[in-house]
Computed example of a mutant assay.
Amino acid sequence: MTLHGLYIPLITPFGADGAVALDALERLAHQVLDDGATGLVALGTTGEPGSLTEPEKQSVIETVARVSRERSAPLIVGAATAEALAALAAVPEAVAALTVVPPFVRPGEAGVLAHFARLAEASPVPIVVYDIPYRTGQYLTAGALRGLAAIGNVAGVKYAGGGINEDTVAMMADPRFAVLGGDDTFISPLLALGAHGGILSSAHLATAQFAELIRLWQAGDATRARALGHRLAPLSKALFAEPNPTVVKSALHAQGRIPTPGVRLPLLNAHPDNTATALKHLAELG
């Protein structure tokens, strides 16, 4: 299986009573697919899974899986433990699990490889490794990423290394697994290097333009792709002016697409000035 294209790591909308707004989540999932997204991600970090109860998580998965089934769209589900991965055997729509590099403990590259080898062996679906060192505290070199690619049942990596460096370039030369960009501001140069697509929170907004960016780079139309990438980068920067997904949710609420801009602690709602800046950049895209 080769993952490619644009995946939207869906936010979890909340109603005025603070409960998960499943109807709004379902509408949002349909909207982004209508606008050109390839697939959906449920319970990624953008979905605030750490603040959801187990019943809420199950409801989110069921809702997004239903949309994926109706639209024949691939679904990736955030799952970081052996138990969460095992539960995906009951989600036939799930084509992969998004599994973060173990945060905080900094086990070293050998520990990371052993960890994913064990998870992948028992997982009922392929694993997409979520490499985001500025959150996990564990940097992975190109050699470690190639080691992950060699593990059976590891389908690819969501790469959010914080920019482009020599390890990024070396990793992109390995054809064995998919690279999906996860640093929204840097998605255009990563696609230029050969990334297969992206898992992009910013693409809740301007979904069609992000999908077009991926299509243009993959078609080899560097001139148009470069220009579009330059136009999209300020939007991504604005949407990440505060901890994700606070500004994304505030912008979606301003558009009338979700009932409230609310997030759950420890996140705080976005400042109105940052929301206004994001909406300004969105309007400039046309």
Rank of each mutant, 00 (worst) to 15 (best):
L98P: 07
A90G: 12
R71N: 05
E70Q: 15
H115I: 04
S59C: 13
R71K: 07
K57V: 02
G108N: 04
A120H: 09
A122D: 11
L98Y: 06
L43W: 00
P126S: 02
V100H: 00
V101I: 10
V129N: 01
R106T: 15
G44F: 01
V77T: 07
T81N: 09
R135L: 11
P55H: 10
G50M: 14
L88D: 01
A110L: 13
Y130L: 05
P102K: 03
A65Y: 08
V129A: 09
P126A: 01
P133G: 02
A42W: 02
A65S: 15
S72G: 13
A87G: 12
A73P: 06
H115G: 00
R66V: 03
E48C: 12
F116E: 01
R66Y: 04
I61A: 05
V129C: 02
T81Q: 08
V77H: 04
E62Y: 05
V129M: 01
E70H: 09
P92H: 10
A73C: 02
G111W: 11
V64S: 07
I61H: 06
P124G: 06
S59T: 14
S72D: 15
P55M: 11
V129Q: 00
V100I: 15
A86V: 10
V95L: 13
A65C: 11
A97Q: 00
E62H: 14
T53D: 04
R66G: 13
S123Q: 05
P49W: 08
L75N: 08
F116D: 01
